[in-house]
Design a protein around this nucleic acid. Structure first.
Length: 475
DNA sequence: AACTGGGACAACCGCCGTACA
DNA sequence: CTGTACGGCGGTTGTCCCAGT
């Protein structure tokens, strides 16, 4: 796997963190005498002795019975992650790595659940592995999931969508959790030791798949773009693909600079899945299909991409309609901004891929100024404004599907089923709106102008999340 | 040799659900 | 029904080690 895993056999000797306050500090501050930071061998011994005598659980009693100066939480964590005898201390095997990816594709950031499928492995271990993987892939501009996974997911999503649209809940893949179940993914043929092998495949989507899906399976092709040009350039294959495939990342009418545009994907970039759907009235889809890239403008709110499992956000019921045009008409750039101000957003975003799958997402493009083509946002501004249909969004760049139940429930405001005309909704979004207006006001003139026009359809954005109802926030 | 960046890992924090008084 | 304690979970941060420059 990586350079560090080789030494996994020799557990690192815990060292005291310099930043954690120690016992004396705690005393000085009059706080309870509870140790923090790395565990010592003596502490481990005490904890193990306690557990062997009293069993697991009742962790808050550990301090009392064993004399450990650790809070119950800390004890539980230490036991669960390090001292349990059944834990594997060896580095993750390739098979385990496969399994993790597979599981993540199925359940998103459900580390604990994933851990139950990987005997001897802890949620923390899996989480760390995944987070490292994300960074690595992002840096290299590679998709998180092997092409096999994406393809399978895509086909599965098509099936799911078909089922959804037909209203045949009996055959739906939706589980009781409100999450789509997808079949086991076969990683047998995937060579994890050669991650670059699938770099091109991440972009290797048949043209036919780009626009012919009535409803874009949200996010199958998750591609990370490094934060820096340096990183992006490291991926020659990716670059070549960029150059050669106008259907992809580059708008057909874009004027290319002498060198390919530099793309990056801010790690905190919020992306709106809505954006990715190919409904007629989804502005985002316009942008996507127009190949419009977004700017690297600062995002008004700090948002983090979260990770996913298979969930569908319904942006518009209509967009799921089979009659919905899979290919939004090409419109002028101005059209892209004609949505309710509430949902105007200075953008970032666009999805290259409009295969509807789109995780292929990218941002922070640097475009040539002074282009000739006025119809192209690319050419009218290098700080492209894209209407992002969102209220609050967290985008999950890690999943082939987009949002996890967690992300869905934490991210999407429950405007569900209500329109923005709803007073409550308006109230909720006012703050956002103000911030966004401020940001938008800095945009190109034509953008601000178009804000005044509100498209009715935009005001009825339904976020139908399939997350557990109990998870939905009550606001 | 020093510096830097990335990876691995450990641990903490905050939130949430559940059990129980 | 309510408040509290506890445990679980996911996100984040801090530290160390190693390799490359």
């Amino acid at each position: 796997m990586s350079k560090m895993t080789g030494g996994g056999d020799a557990p690192r000797v815990p060292r005291r963190r310099q930043s954690v306050f120690d016992i004396t500090e705690a005393r000085r501050r009059g706080e309870e005498h509870l140790n923090k930071g790395p565990w010592t061998l003596a502490e481990d011994a005490k904890l193990m002795a306690y557990v062997s005598q009293h069993g697991e659980g009742n962790w808050n009693a550990v301090q009392m019975h064993s004399g450990l100066s650790r809070c119950g939480k800390s004890c539980r964590l230490r036991w669960a992650n390090h001292l349990r005898p059944e834990l594997k201390k060896s580095p993750l095997t390739e098979e385990e790595e496969r399994r993790i990816i597979e599981l993540h594709a199925q359940m998103g950031n459900k580390w604990a659940k994933m851990a139950t499928q990987l005997p001897g492995r802890t949620d923390n271990e899996i989480k760390n592995y995944w987070n490292t993987r994300i960074k690595r892939m992002q840096r290299a501009g590679l998709p998180l999931y092997p092409s096999e996974v994406r393809q399978r997911v895509r086909s599965q999503e098509n099936q799911n969508m078909g089922t959804l649209m037909s209203g045949d809940s009996q055959h739906s893949e939706i589980s009781q959790d409100g999450i789509f179940n997808i079949p086991q993914l076969d990683f047998k043929n995937y060579d994890f030791s050669r991650a670059h092998a699938f770099a091109p495949s991440g972009l290797d989507i048949p043209d036919s798949s780009l626009f012919q899906q009535p409803v874009g399976p949200p996010y199958n092709d998750l591609i990370f773009f490094g934060n820096s040009a340096k990183h992006l350039r490291e991926s020659d294959m990716f670059y070549n693909r960029l150059d050669n495939s106008s259907n992809y990342m580059i708008p057909a009418n874009a004027n290319y600079p002498a060198e390919p545009p530099l793309l990056s994907y801010p790690s905190n970039l919020p992306l709106d899945p809505n954006y990715l759907f190919c409904g007629d009235n989804l502005h985002g889809s316009h942008a996507a299909l127009n190949g419009t890239f977004s700017s690297s403008a600062p995002i008004p709110e700090a948002m983090k991409p979260e990770l996913p499992s298979l969930q569908y956000l319904e942006t518009q019921q209509g967009s799921w309609d089979a009659n919905a045009s899979p290919l939004p008409s090409l419109e002028s750039a101005d059209t892209m901004f004609q949505s309710s101000p509430v949902e105007q957003y200075q953008s970032f975003a666009v999805t290259p891929a409009s295969d509807g799958l789109l995780e292929s997402v990218v941002y922070d493009t640097r475009l040539p100024r002074g282009s000739n083509n006025k119809d192209s946002l690319w050419n009218t501004t290098d700080e492209c404004m894209v209407n992002v249909a969102r209220t609050e969004t967290e985008w999950d760049p890690n999943s082939p599907f987009g949002h996890s139940s967690a992300s869905v429930h934490t991210v999407y405001t429950p405007v569900s089923i209500s329109s923005v005309d709803d007073p409550h909704h308006m109230e909720h979004t006012r703050a956002d709106h103000e911030m966004r207006q401020e940001a938008i006001s800095q945009g190109p003139p034509h953008v601000g102008q178009s804000q005044e026009t509100s498209s009715p359809i935009d005001t009825t954005r339904v976020h139908l999340t399939l997350a557990k109802a109990k998870k939905l926030p009550v606001r």
